[in-house]
Computed example of a mutant assay.
Amino acid sequence: MNEKTFFGFCANNGFGKVPDLLRAVRQADRDGLELVSMFDHPYVGEFLDTYATLGFTLGATQRITGFADVTNLPTRPAPMPARTLTSLSELSGGRVVLGLGAGFHWDRISDMGVPRLSPGDAVNAFEEAIVLIKKLSGGGPAVTYEGKHYRVNQIEPAPVAAPLVWTGSGGAKSLAATGRVADGWLPPFTADWLSETYRTGRPIIDEAAASVGRDPGEIRTICNIPGRITDHPLGKTRDDDNRWVGGSVEQWIEELTGAVLEHGAAGFNFAEPSGFVEDLTTLGRWATEIVPAVREGIAKEGAGSVAD
Rank of each mutant, 00 (worst) to 15 (best):
G179H: 06
W244I: 02
G14V: 06
T84D: 02
A303C: 01
R220S: 06
E289R: 04
R228A: 11
I109M: 14
E250K: 04
F67A: 12
L117W: 07
M112G: 13
V277P: 00
L58D: 04
T190I: 07
N153V: 06
T288K: 02
F47E: 09
C10W: 07
T257P: 11
Q251I: 12
L22C: 03
R214P: 04
V181S: 08
P159V: 08
W286G: 02
A293I: 01
L280D: 05
G184C: 04
G179N: 07
A68Q: 01
A60K: 12
W106A: 05
K300Q: 13
L164W: 12
L58S: 03
I109D: 11
T71W: 09
T200G: 13
V97D: 00
D121Q: 13
G16I: 11
E301T: 08
G103H: 10
D111T: 13
L33Y: 10
I204D: 10
P233N: 09
G55P: 14
A161E: 15
E156W: 08
R30Q: 15
K4Y: 01
E46W: 07
L73T: 05
G247P: 11
P226F: 11
L261W: 05
A191F: 05
T282E: 13
F268S: 06
C223D: 00
N2M: 09
I222Q: 11
P216L: 12
L98N: 00
D192Q: 08
T167L: 00
G103C: 12
S118D: 13
T86K: 05
I253G: 07
A52K: 08
K135N: 03
G304F: 00
S137V: 00
S211K: 04
V131G: 02
N13P: 10
P188I: 02
R220G: 11
H232N: 00
V306M: 03
V249E: 14
D121E: 15
T57P: 00
V114I: 15
R202S: 15
G275F: 07
S92A: 05
V114C: 05
K135I: 05
R214V: 06
C10E: 08
L21S: 03
A78Y: 03
N124K: 04
W286P: 03
I64E: 05
K4G: 10
S118Y: 09
F56W: 15
G258C: 08
A208L: 14
L186M: 13
R202E: 12
G93M: 13
E254V: 14
Q154A: 10
S110I: 05
D231N: 14
T65G: 04
F9R: 07
G171P: 10
P115H: 14
E46T: 13
G258V: 04
V96P: 11
V245W: 10
E46K: 08
L85S: 05
L35H: 09
A82W: 02
G168R: 02
R30G: 10
F126D: 10
E289Y: 04
F126N: 09
R76F: 14
A142W: 07
L132R: 03
G14N: 04
R83V: 09
P188L: 08
Y150D: 07
G45Q: 14
F268C: 04
A28M: 12
G235H: 00
W252G: 11
V143Q: 05
V260P: 00
G14W: 07
V165T: 08
K300W: 08
V245L: 13
V25H: 00
N269G: 00
N72H: 02
E278A: 10
F67L: 15
